[in-house]
Design a protein around this nucleic acid. Sequence first.
DNA 1: CATGAATGAGTATTCATTCAT
DNA 2: TATGAATGAATACTCATTCAT
Lengths: 211, 211, 211, 211
Amino acid sequence: MNLREQKAAHKKEAIMKAAISVFTEKGYGGASLEDVAQKLFMTKGAIYYYFKDKPDLLYQSQVYLLQKSNHLISEILDSESTTIEKMKKAIVQHTEYVINERSGFESMLNPESFLTIEQQNEILRLKNEYESKFDKLIEKGVKEGVFIQGNIKIVRNLLLGAMNWVMQWYSEGGKKSKAELSDMIAFYLLRMLLQNPDENYVNGGGDDEVQ
Amino acid sequence: MNLREQKAAHKKEAIMKAAISVFTEKGYGGASLEDVAQKLFMTKGAIYYYFKDKPDLLYQSQVYLLQKSNHLISEILDSESTTIEKMKKAIVQHTEYVINERSGFESMLNPESFLTIEQQNEILRLKNEYESKFDKLIEKGVKEGVFIQGNIKIVRNLLLGAMNWVMQWYSEGGKKSKAELSDMIAFYLLRMLLQNPDENYVNGGGDDEVQ
Amino acid sequence: MNLREQKAAHKKEAIMKAAISVFTEKGYGGASLEDVAQKLFMTKGAIYYYFKDKPDLLYQSQVYLLQKSNHLISEILDSESTTIEKMKKAIVQHTEYVINERSGFESMLNPESFLTIEQQNEILRLKNEYESKFDKLIEKGVKEGVFIQGNIKIVRNLLLGAMNWVMQWYSEGGKKSKAELSDMIAFYLLRMLLQNPDENYVNGGGDDEVQ
Amino acid sequence: MNLREQKAAHKKEAIMKAAISVFTEKGYGGASLEDVAQKLFMTKGAIYYYFKDKPDLLYQSQVYLLQKSNHLISEILDSESTTIEKMKKAIVQHTEYVINERSGFESMLNPESFLTIEQQNEILRLKNEYESKFDKLIEKGVKEGVFIQGNIKIVRNLLLGAMNWVMQWYSEGGKKSKAELSDMIAFYLLRMLLQNPDENYVNGGGDDEVQ
DNA sequence: CATGAATGAGTATTCATTCAT
DNA sequence: TATGAATGAATACTCATTCAT
């Protein structure tokens, strides 16, 4: 990839990031490409140089987001830690990602209706990939006896839901730092899974404010 | 309220329900009044007889949804049960509501940007009303010693998030009935709060499928 | 069809006529719906009430034109006249139609590229219907011995081509009336077919000016 | 003209040929420079090195086409043949040109609206030059007594129209070769003019298929 | 010379909204 | 009350054109 191509890739990424933020804020249907362009001090036309049309911008943005997420969680899975430690890291990472990008990994509600079947399938595939990494972590914990037995997919969905929703209530001005907050969230969410929550997890949970 | 008014109120409610479903599916910005009208075999114009404009439809729909929710949770709070029992009921009810209406109580992401300040405040007030009922339940449990101490608002947000998200992954064809599913969800979510989860909660959680 | 529907049909027809004239003058690609709307003192939006999109307007206009043509030539075929007389009438009629509507029955070059396959097929079907009426007339003349034998489809195409092209060179200000002109055209074109041109056709052809 | 200039002239010609074909297929307004460039595996921008703008490309293409045509018909007029023979050759040549270039000499409907007055005049001049060569041939035939008397301009327009229209109905896969087809066309068209068609023209016309 | 990138003006299309009936 | 019709403003999208490299 030569310099020119690098520059182009960079710009494309910048557009996708801006698009994600605008789509998250106003919803796909409520966001105009003008909004996206203005955020980048570009003209609408420039966007069309990099993306075929609005649905294409949505699709590629989703793919970008999911691939990045998949990469991040893979790193955690491959690291040297106990299963509990890994799960905690995964929760903290997901939560901070949601807060920082103002966008759930899988948030933007049902944008599927705007995509082609093939695009929907690819998105689904990437989501499944991410979710199955979580599932594996849970299964491992169950086998090791540190997590309770149960319906893995349901717990996983509850975990992800609780985290993605953070986007809806987190507000910049809070007294807690992002790190403190995500730590506390991990504390609570892990309780759903832990065999002996009070023994297996120390610190977190102790205070009384939000928003 | 005479017959004519009753009829009108009925129609208004029908429109709001249709609107909620369309807004939830396509987002406020992506939904057209045409979509809403078609669902009811009406014409666009008719909606304007009942609602001032699109934001008004959004606003009234939200209020309708929240008032209903507030009413439902009040009934639970006023009932004769243990705190744990009440919390379980609240979770089951919220979950089933989300599944049946295909719409989180507070789902529709940030539609606030389309409303006037007063409208936003009223929505906020109703949301707070609902949330504080949850908070009270938690506080009571803490005082009674059945729930762990901690940051009430955060737990409450995690609970609501996990439940609202169900809308994203629940699919009609699942092997589990809605009742079984919401029961299992309550089992997991209560673990976040319960002092001694394994003693204080019997049944639920034991199987391995979803979707 | 009640009054309202009649009015709507009327308006639709008016839009198609305006569209035909604009498409003929500027070509489909070069014409804007704004142009069409202005011709009728309407707004662009109104056109979209009657037609799905620009290609739909093109398609329906073509169908309208061809159906009308088919109707007209059927009347001639059904009338009481000799074959030669009928052919002459068909030529005169087609020519005058082209002049008056500023649009060949099948003119507008290759607008097919903008239509769906089904639409193209329907257009083709209507064109074939029209052309086969011409063909029948020629065949009849051949059987009766008044037209020379030969390749019917080629002659027919030459006849239609010569007539459709009139649109390109006819100009309002000419010394000849439309009737005189089309009569003269019929005189020449019939010579291609007639067994003994000089016996079978009297009058026409005798002068020396155009444009 | 040195090598570099020759190369440039060559490229210019290639662009014009591509442009003619695209303009003929989609119309001037419907054709994009992107289309033209793609046909030549170039980028849009390159065209601007050779042509000032889109109208300029149209204008020069037209001039190129007409000059070539004028050159070709001049050769026929200057050759040693009877008038009938010359007319036949002119018809065959024009027809084959239309078929091969998929473009009537004067086809592309009314592109005049996009050109300056001076450009329109030059085009008109070249068209007149071509047409008057046809007219001269006809006049000569009339004087020699082999063509019937009549309105020369009208016959000439009918002839050209019939030939230009071939573009609309000729299709590659036909059973007849281009030579056979144009021969047959000449047979029919000459009948419009010939004093005694059945004596003065032998062969052609005898069969029954097209397309 | 040619290309990739960007612009801006124009055009297609959608849709909330109005209104006469 | 409800509908068909129309408007106008916003928005998606295209494309001729320019220009630095």
